[in-house]
């Protein structure tokens, strides 16, 4: 479960998140929509622990524990996962090596045994098949030379292997064609479970046709300005973000 309470965040002199509060229950899929510059990605980065942001006040509770004092790796070990809008290329690190290193690093932080190689391979095979990731891709350097769709699928594959209790998907649909959106969405839907919450950040309602959210929040000017169900996304598809433009200008 994720609870964001009265979060105020700045970068330099500029305040980006403004007394933002949000709660996502276990098993819930919450979507955040909003215009460019409303602070959606900042929220994702702050929850994941990126350092360049200054948290002025507020709390981010993951399963009841405030994670703002924790480093990104400690948050990951507590069960947090961020799928990046632009997954980073890591030249020289074979994807398979990276997956194993990441999985075992989290297990170690949690005081668990490393996975045996056969067990690891079994899990990789299963996740790879679900996301149409060919074994050849796993031998290549992580995300290097991958297409946009391949990078996003690789991020979802990592999520499948790391089995987080809460996952944030930051504009996972951006730059993807219809087929790629469908494959990514299938991957996410396969990971839905009563104990796992999702926060899906997107500009476009299209993704929400494939991953049907329980709640939809509109973000503008660094705060949640409206909340509702899936029908809110459908409404935004028709009306756009015009009515929230004033909020953005006023607060950002």
């Amino acid at each position: 479960m994720l609870e964001v309470k009265n979060l105020n965040v700045a970068i330099g002199e500029r305040q980006i998140l403004n007394d933002l509060s949000l709660s996502v229950a276990p098993g819930e899929i919450a979507a955040i929509m909003g215009p460019n510059g409303s602070g959606k990605s900042t929220l994702a980065y702050v929850i994941a622990g990126k350092q360049e942001y200054e948290v002025l006040s507020g709390e981010v509770l993951l399963n009841g524990e405030n994670v703002l004092e924790l480093s990104p790796d400690e948050r990951a070990a507590k069960g947090l996962f961020l799928a990046f809008q632009y997954p980073v290329e890591i030249p020289g690190v074979a994807t398979m090596t990276f997956l194993k290193t990441a999985l075992n690093a989290q297990r170690k932080q949690r005081g668990e045994e490393e996975l045996t190689i056969p067990e690891f391979m079994k899990r990789v095979k299963k996740a790879g098949e679900m996301l149409d990731i060919k074994p050849d891709m796993l031998k290549r350097a992580l995300n290097v030379g991958f297409s946009g769709g391949e990078k996003k699928r690789m991020d979802i594959m990592q999520m499948a292997l790391l089995e987080p209790s809460f996952a944030i998907l930051d504009e996972t649909d951006s730059g993807l064609d219809i087929d790629a959106v469908r494959i990514v969405a299938q991957g996410v839907n396969a990971l839905r479970s009563p104990g796992r919450g999702f926060l899906i950040i997107t500009h476009y309602p299209r993704l929400l046709d494939h991953i049907v959210p329980d709640t939809v929040h509109v973000m503008a000017g660094g705060r949640i300005v409206r909340s509702g169900g899936k029908e809110l996304a459908d409404e935004l598809e028709k009306t756009g973000y015009r009515e929230y433009a004033g909020e953005s200008e006023e607060l950002v």
Partner: peptide
């Protein structure tokens, strides 16, 4: 960015 990406996957900063 690369460091942050790896850390979000559970690697401690030194690793």
């Amino acid at each position: 960015d690369q460091l942050f990406y790896l850390e979000t996957r559970g690697l401690p900063p030194a690793a």
